[in-house]
Design a protein around this nucleic acid. Structure first.
Length: 279
DNA sequence: CCCCTATCCTGAGGGC
DNA sequence: TGCCCTCAGGATAGGG
């Protein structure tokens, strides 16, 4: 499931293949994945455009076009972007194919269709609400020192809810939230007000650290649901301490990792190391 | 106004 | 062996 490290890996891999290329043809478009604009406006607006920079903001991929508009892709749960020869076998659930003048094709697949595609100027997309306003970038230099104030302001909310709030921290998802909470020894359901400022800072440092480590490993893949632009899996699943580890020993104290439901998703944690507490 | 819940969607995997 | 049931969750709309 693509979170910051997976999306960043894709963006880095995409850059040399896509930057400077002209989008010669839109070959395949499932209008269901296009959030803005409509398909009849999308195709002429993108055809013939040259892609320049490819950037990541949170979990969003932003491909800048010569027109000044952005082609924005969010991969949702199961979305993939791959570079393939245009004649390569077409896999099911391919929703968009962009034929480049190099003869290579950028393909967007998403079996579960939680992802989405946008096209437009950033200010327009934000004004329409299809591109949400995002919070701090965990890998940016000022993140650990600059973010505690915004986090501690949300005193009454469970701490994991704050970690997952994209308007506060951009790019952290369920896997890395659980990993960071374990590393910082914080219970997911503690009100944020129970964190001291140093402890909040430690937690944010762990968010940054785990995202950086996962990026270095090429991200986390389960059942090849996430793959990079060449179709390869990441290796960070071997480094997970709690996510998906229910019943296994906590790497720190040896007690079993527990899984509980929280916010309609699963939370994995160690009841001993991550006891509900203040300070 | 804020927070919580349901909803979207399909493939994988477990159990009988 | 094969079928069916459950589960995974990012973001958002809507309800309480």
């Amino acid at each position: 499931m693509p979170e910051l490290p997976e999306v960043e890996t894709i963006v880095r891999d995409l850059n040399p293949h896509l930057s400077g290329q002209v989008i010669a043809e839109v070959r395949h478009l499932n209008p269901a994945v296009l959030r803005h604009p409509s398909a009849d406006l999308f195709v002429p607006a993108i055809t013939g455009q040259r892609a320049s920079s490819i950037r990541r903001r949170g979990k969003f991929i932003q491909i800048a076009l010569g027109s000044g508009e952005l082609l924005v892709v969010h991969l949702g749960m199961t979305g993939t972007l791959t570079m393939e020869p245009s004649g390569a076998t077409l896999r099911p659930h391919t929703h968009l194919r962009l034929g480049l003048d190099s003869g290579i094709e950028l393909r967007y697949r998403d079996p579960r269709r939680f992802g989405r595609v946008l096209l437009g100027e950033l200010s327009t997309l934000e004004a329409l609400g299809v591109m949400p306003r995002l919070g701090a970038e965990p890998l940016s230099p000022g993140f650990v020192d600059g973010t505690p104030d915004q986090v501690l302001k949300l005193a009454h909310r469970p701490v994991k809810a704050v970690l997952l709030d994209q308007a506060v921290i951009a790019g952290c998802g369920n896997i890395y939230a659980d990993e960071a909470l374990w590393a910082a020894r914080v219970h997911y359901d503690q009100p944020t007000s129970t964190l001291s400022r140093p402890r909040a800072k430690t937690l944010l440092a762990e968010v940054r650290l785990v995202l950086g480590k996962a990026l270095a490993e090429g991200g986390t893949s389960f059942d090849a649901q996430y793959v990079n632009v060449n179709g390869a899996s990441g290796y960070f699943s071997h480094s997970l301490n709690v996510y998906g580890q229910q019943g296994n020993a906590c790497p720190r104290c040896g007690r079993p990792i527990v899984r509980e439901q929280f916010m309609n998703r699963s939370s994995h944690f160690c009841e001993h190391c991550q006891a509900f507490r203040s300070a």
